[in-house]
Design a protein around this nucleic acid. Structure first.
Length: 775
DNA sequence: GTGGCATAGCTTTTT
DNA sequence: GCTATGCCAC
């Protein structure tokens, strides 16, 4: 690279920094903790600090910067390169923890896999399949032991760095010991298949650093400076890794306790609190000026988060202007909410000339995106949903990738079976068992058996023909792989020879057509990867790359698309205009059936979402929401009452989206006025509340934040009306219970009742012979 | 062994 | 309301 005439020197690196930012950037050697509130310029601090180190003579490849997503890594790499324009080298190592570990384990081997380098990374789908098999081997019913929850138990244990033995010792009672037992089998299966799950990548790295002094020394020597972003979201193993590599003490961590929202994933706020203890004499810099949001938005966020007890006081201020009031919009139901959001977005784009990419809609659970999507679609507004249906997790994509995974690691049995079934070749479960038995006899792996003429004789007829076909294809692509053929060529071979897309293409189902498109998108992605790496991309790197992409990484966003995402996915991003929807008690904070909820984490989540907004923030909730195909009546989130009233402007959807709808809005306010006294004044049991009346009697803008009286039926028994959520009922057989959901109308109306016995049943109201019970 | 249909269960968040 | 699973018929 030729030396540029304009080399941004120390001046450019330190320009327009406030005193604390400057302090963090200029800090020399030794541990540094940067407490960075939202919008306080922490990315700027990290990039400038790295640039300053390099300018001071540190070779860029001696700096390791860890980010939360690959996208953030890419952006950071770019920003650093820009700051270092003119330097000979700018190749700072910027990566996520998981990608970094995967790379190192490929180089040095995974300790628990006999230091093998040809391991496969298992995603959640693969993990669940492994748990299912482990359950089967333990003779446990998948119905009773849900693979998903067993898996999260296993993952939680791994995050605490407990193996099956430790988990067993901690176990209390049968259920707990069973989980330890399944965990042990799960570990054995993954070892057999030479697979590592996401948690393993971190644990194996810890192990590698602990067991191999030479590797630890090599990495510590290479990476003289280690920086970790979003430190509040690191878990135990991640912290261990950072600490071991930064044994020289040049560890800089940046985080904010108030933005920790991954506690459920094992993230440990304690890491931040412990950092000072683990690093005596560490420098602490606080960034307390927010450059992102208006005063009103920031104040709303600060008032909310002040309700948390487990936090460190961190006063934030902003030089920005007051800004608009936050809009708090009460909707009758989710349809109206979606319509409001879409119309308001449409207006903003058209009248305020805001780029769609500067607008975002946030929600607590993915399920809430659908209605908004429909409304945006109906208005022809382009949007991107982040994280909904991850491309690489789709069945057709995984089917085709299974072939490549076999090449990367022939021990990966589930991939062998998956490829064998894609498309169906007449080789079913029984045939696979026969083949597996024969493979075992002859000391072969399943993959080897599929191409071994002798082993193939375990099958006959249609199954044998299918197996041979598969074996030949496998041999062809193995040969291509050995010749280091481009990935695109291998995938073409797989798709053509297996005729995977043939049946799909002929199908009448439009979804199948979309599947064909997805397969082609995969082929294009492979070709792109080939190009990036020269002629042919490295197979394992390609597979790692795919496995470690985050939702944010793999979604096509852009200036022309409105962004839809969960509160979690919003972390680290910012937008001019933000809509937070579904702000009902139960949705946010979200109540879960089994696990205890962490109210403070839910509040932090709300805080993170609010602080993403630069200029304008709209908060919406719906009186009635269809969830699980059932109408649920809710009241506004208690978090809303933690925002000072003076910052909010309450409105109905019509009023909020413009004067043209005034008439309609007045008509409706009239309706509210009639209903309101009954709502507010009546003692709970007497309030009129048929399912239909419920729907009509939306919470008015004013009494909305007051907890609404619980809805109880009118006097008398039940016909086809008089049922509502929260009603206490008695069933001749099941006993007393409470209505938790309603669906349908008239004779077809069904009610979901949670009985005091704990059982939940859905009953047809007309036939169920329910009686109203005393509360 | 496969594909169709019915039904149960589900949705918290993600590397 | 959707989908993944389970059962049944071919």
């Amino acid at each position: 690279m030729s030396a540029s005439l304009e080399r941004p020197g120390a001046d450019a690196i330190l320009s327009d920094l406030n005193p604390s930012q400057r302090e963090a950037v200029e800090h020399g050697d030794g541990p540094l903790l940067v407490v960075a509130g939202p919008g306080s310029g922490k990315t700027r601090v990290i990039t400038r600090r790295v640039a300053r180190l390099v300018r001071a003579g540190v070779r860029p490849w001696r700096v390791l910067a860890i980010t939360f997503t690959n996208k953030a890594a890419g952006e950071m790499r770019e920003r650093i390169a820009r700051l270092l324009e003119g330097e000979r080298e700018t190749n700072v190592y910027v990566s996520t923890f998981h990608s970094f570990c995967a790379r190192m384990l490929r180089r040095y081997g995974a300790p628990s896999r006999g230091f093998a380098q040809d391991y496969t990374i298992y995603d959640e789908d693969d993990q669940r399949a492994a748990v299912r098999q482990a359950l089967a081997e333990a003779n446990l019913e998948a119905k009773q032991w849900k693979p998903g929850s067993v898996l999260s138990e296993i993952s939680a244990a791994k995050n605490r760095m407990e193996g099956p033995d430790e988990r067993d010792q901690q176990a209390i009672g049968y259920a707990d010991r069973t989980i330890a037992r399944v965990y042990r089998i799960y570990e054995r299966l993954l070892a057999e298949w030479k697979a590592l799950d996401f948690d393993d990548l971190l644990l194996e790295m810890v192990k590698l650093l602990r067991e191999r002094e030479d590797v630890r020394a090599e990495l510590a020597d290479r990476f003289r400076y280690v920086l970790v972003d979003e430190f509040q979201d690191t878990n135990r193993p991640q912290y261990e890794i950072a600490r071991m590599i930064a044994a020289h003490g040049n560890l800089c961590v940046v985080g904010d306790v108030d933005q920790s929202v991954y506690g459920w994933r094992g993230a440990d706020i304690g890491n931040i609190l412990e950092f000072e203890r683990d690093h005596p004499g560490c420098r602490v810099v606080r960034l307390e000026t927010n450059y992102r949001s208006t005063k009103r938005i920031l104040e709303a966020a600060c008032s909310l988060i002040a309700h948390n007890v487990r936090r460190i006081e961190n006063p934030l201020s902003t030089p920005n202007e007051e800004g608009e009031a936050l809009r708090l919009v009460a909707c009758l139901n989710d349809d109206e909410e979606a319509r409001f959001v879409a119309r308001s977005i449409e207006r903003t784009i058209r009248e305020d000339d805001v780029a769609p990419g500067e607008i975002a809609v946030f929600y607590r659970t993915n399920a809430l995106s659908r209605k908004v999507e429909q409304e945006l679609l109906a208005r022809g507004i382009a949007y991107a949903v982040i994280g909904a249906l991850a491309f690489y997790e789709r069945k057709e994509v995984k089917d085709v990738l299974a072939y490549l995974r076999i090449l990367g690691n022939p021990g990966d049995e589930p991939s062998v079976i998956r490829a064998l079934h894609s498309p169906p070749r007449g080789v079913g479960a029984t045939s696979v068992e026969k083949l597996r038995a024969r493979a075992k006899e002859r000391g072969l792996t399943l993959a080897q058996a599929t191409v071994d003429p002798e082993a193939q004789t375990a099958l006959a007829g249609k199954a044998l023909r299918g197996l041979k076909e598969f074996g030949e294809l496998l041999e062809t692509i193995s040969l291509l792989a050995a010749q280091r053929a481009p990935l695109r060529q291998m995938l073409d071979e797989i798709v053509d020879r297996s005729r995977y897309t043939d049946a799909l293409r002929e199908s009448r189902d439009p979804q199948d057509r979309a599947r064909v498109e997805n397969v082609h998108a995969l082929l294009d992605a492979a070709e792109e990867f080939d190009r990036q790496q020269g002629h042919a991309g490295d197979l394992r790197e390609f597979l790692d790359h795919i496995a470690l992409l985050t939702d944010v990484d793999r979604t096509r966003t852009g200036p022309d698309r409105v962004n839809l995402m969960t509160f979690h996915a919003a972390k680290g991003l910012e937008f001019d205009e933000v809509y937070m929807i579904g702000l009902e008690e139960g949705m946010l904070p979200l109540v879960r059936e089994l696990e205890a909820q962490d109210l403070e984490e839910e509040r932090r989540l709300c805080y993170v979402a609010i602080t993403r907004a630069r200029k304008r923030l709209s908060l919406t909730y719906a009186r009635v929401r269809r969830y699980f195909g059932m109408d649920r009546t809710g009241r506004p989130s208690s978090f809303l009452s933690e925002i000072p009233d003076g910052l909010l402007e309450r409105g109905s959807p019509e009023i909020a989206y413009g004067p043209s709808d005034r008439l309609k809005a007045y008509a409706r306010l009239d309706g509210w006025a009639r209903e309101r006294p009954a709502l507010a004044a009546a003692p709970a049991p007497a309030a009129p509340a048929s399912a239909r009346a419920d729907r009509a009697s939306g919470a008015g803008p004013d009494p909305a934040l007051r907890p609404l009286p619980s809805y109880a039926p009118s006097a008398g028994g039940f016909g086809d009306a008089g049922l509502s959520q929260g009603t206490r009922v008695e069933h001749p057989h099941f006993g007393a219970g409470e209505i938790v959901g309603l669906r349908g109308h008239g004779l077809a109306q069904r009610v979901k009742v949670r009985f005091d016995s704990g059982a939940e049943k859905e009953l047809v109201a007309h036939y169920a012979n329910l009686r109203r019970a005393a509360p």
